[in-house]
Every structure is written in C-alpha cells, then in structure tokens.
Design a binder for these strands. Sequence first.
DNA 1: CTGTCAAGTTGACACTGTAAAGACTATTCT
DNA 2: AGAATAGTCTTTACAGTGTCAACTTGACAG
Lengths: 215, 215
Amino acid sequence: MPPTPPHPDPTTILQPDRYHHGDLPNALRCAAVEVINEKGLGHFSLREVARRAGVSHAAPAHHFGDTTGLLTSLAVQGFDELTAEMTAATAGIDDPEERLVAVGRGYVETGQRYPAHCEVMFRTDLVRCDDPAYVEAGGRAYGVLLDAVRAVTERDNPALVAEDAADLCWSAMQGLLVLYPNMARKRAALGLPVPSLEDRVVRFTRMIIDGLRAR
Amino acid sequence: MPPTPPHPDPTTILQPDRYHHGDLPNALRCAAVEVINEKGLGHFSLREVARRAGVSHAAPAHHFGDTTGLLTSLAVQGFDELTAEMTAATAGIDDPEERLVAVGRGYVETGQRYPAHCEVMFRTDLVRCDDPAYVEAGGRAYGVLLDAVRAVTERDNPALVAEDAADLCWSAMQGLLVLYPNMARKRAALGLPVPSLEDRVVRFTRMIIDGLRAR
DNA sequence: CTGTCAAGTTGACACTGTAAAGACTATTCT
DNA sequence: AGAATAGTCTTTACAGTGTCAACTTGACAG
C-alpha cells in the first residue's frame, strides 16, 4: 500500500488559472478519461483533452511526449487502481475460495469504476508496452491474483500449476469485461433474464474454482 | 484528365483496371486487414485503405458509408470465419469433451489466422453493434460454441446452465487472445518456458471442463 | 541582475474523416 | 436503336487531428 493515494479522485478539478498549471499531468489524465468515456477510444483526441484541461494543444507533449505516452500513463494508473481494489476486496477474508471470488469482484469493480482505464490497459497498439512503469504496475496487479489462486490450488490441488490457473482467471475476467454487453444484449433478445456483471463474475469464478479442485 | 485508367496499381490482385472496380468492397476489406496488421487499429486510416485498393479516398463511402461501416463488415466476415473454423474443427469428433476442446482450437486458429478481424469483432466503439448482419453472424458463432458446451453439460452435469458455461468459455478464449502477448512476455521475463497459444487454449478448455463436471 | 530551465503558447505541416457535387459507365426503359 | 437512370468512382473542400519547431512566460539559483 503506497503512502500516497493511488491517484486523486477523478472529480478533482483543476487549480485556479496560473501559467504553470500546478498538476497538469493529472488534469490531462482526468480529461482523457472524460473523453474516452464520452467518445470512446476510437475517437480519442489529444487536442480535445488539452482543450478540456484548459491548456493549449501542444502542452501535453511536454509531459507525455505523444498520445501513447498519455495513454500508457492511464494504463499504469489503471493497474494501480486494480491492485488496490483487489487487495481491498480480499481484506479480512481467510477462506481461499472466498478470497478468490473477492479478487474477481475487485476486478469487475475496477472495470466498472474506471472503464476508460480498463479499455486502455491491454491495448498493445496504443500503449508503450515496454515502458518499465507499465510492466511493473501490471506485474503487481497480476501478483495479487496469483497469490489468491495459489492459496486455492495449494490447499485443494497442489498438482496444478498456479500460474496456469491464474492466467485462466485473468483471461476469463478480461473477456467478460469485453463481452458482457454482447452477452447481455443476446440474453435480452432471447427474453432471458439478464444477470448483472457482478453476478457473472462470481458465477464464473466459482466455476473455475470447481475446475481447480477437480482431479 | 487523360483517358488513362485511374488506378493502374499492379499490386492489387483484383481485376484488370476498369472504372468500375469489379469487387471493391472485398478489395477494401483486404486492404483494411493489411493496414490493421501493419499499423494497428489505433492508427487505422480509411484513406490509406482506399489508397491501397488503388481507389480514391472517397470511394469507400459508397459501399460502407463510413469507417465504422467498413469495420462492421470486417467483423461480420470474422464471425463467419470463426463459425466455419469451429465447425470444421469439430468435424468427426464425437466425444463431447474433445469436441469442446476442438471448438477452442478453432477459436484460436481463427484468432491467429485473422487477427485483424478478431481485433475488430468486439470493439463496440468501432462497430455498429445493432447492424442486423453483425448480430446474426455473432449469433451463429455463439451457437456453435453453445452446442458443444451443451453436449458436455448434458452428459456430465445436467444441472448446469449451458449458457453460463458457454459464456465462460467464450470469455476465457476472448481474454486469452487479448492477454496472451502480455502473459508470454511476463513468463519470458521470469525465465519460464513460454507455452504456445494453442497450448494455452487447450489447457484452459480442459480446466473449464473439469469445472463443468464437478459437483 | 543574469542565466537557466521547465512549463505553456503559437504557428505550421501533413494527414485524417466526411460531405457535396461532378464525371464516368452499365443497365434498363421506351 | 437512343435516352434516361442508377450505380460507381473522382474531385474538391472543410474542419479537425498529431506532431514538430520556435517562441514566451515564470520561477529560481548564483
């Protein structure tokens, strides 16, 4: 748990207008999140971001270099948020199975709270994947999941490679985040009840856990 | 304007140069795939696509309306390809478990053979998700998976809701496709052996199946 | 006061998506 | 047959984009 907050609340608004902005990088990240939420990553525009941050269109370059620099920074923030959310979700839970479910909940919670960040995190074409901050932040998040998975496999099925199981969990959660709208639409079209995203993640996690225990 | 043909590009496989291209929609799709593969979806450009198809920059509009129209068309093609690949993969396989594994193989096969298509299929911000062709193509692909899953659950665990299990499979495969580069990089960095994508999909599918049979 | 340096600005360039209007061809209608 | 029409592609135009280079502003160390 870092001493400083992972990142300021997205609603924090900018300082009074000085020439030197104070904390332009953060203001730009916030604006970027706004833009992504409103227009989607496909219509992301650096100039629009600068405009919303009340700053000239070339200002971002001094902090992030180019567009991918800004997005990479967002991805890092997203990973940190994810790490925090997952660790918080598991606090005080001892049973390995329940811990893993809680991790899943944390994942989806992050996906819902910071959808813009999550859209960016694995977009290898928009992010500088070799940025050290990026790989480290990703590694920390993965570590939380891996620990939770290991607790389950060690108790129930020591023969299983924990990394494999963790990768499966991660993939399922990631895919769920992407596919959920489609799944919901399809179920609605068929007249079936549409389960909530959290419902889905819990259900999936339990199914996977059943698999981990088998054999 | 001399009477010489307007698009003498020799690299295009397409018809001899006439004013009416012959099959421009397909040529544009092919060019789009090229562009996505080379520059990534983040740097996709409709004009570049037109250029490669040897056609003026406004020509695509007459067939696809706008950019999302072209990408939607790609997504539909991807779904059709996926359907074909999955059904082909299961041909002649009777054992339900092996069939489901084969479906997974077909999924990844598609992802490897048509990566550009797959990048587009679930990008809800770049695709017209309410396009009837889109939802139908998606539905057909999903149906193949659902059938395979149902065969497993009906035999081994009738209490399980097949749709739930199918959604889990789909999510895991989708997530795997997106996350695999990251997972590979991470394992490589740790000095661990890097399993192939196909290896991963088979492993994951078996883990999920173990879960389906449990209880 | 002077240098220096980081932070923002302005202006420019080549490029993008989309729209409107014109040019060409094929087909259909009389 | 010839004319009208519909479909296909081109041209031109416009606003918006990312990035670069050169400039200005403010703060701070000596």
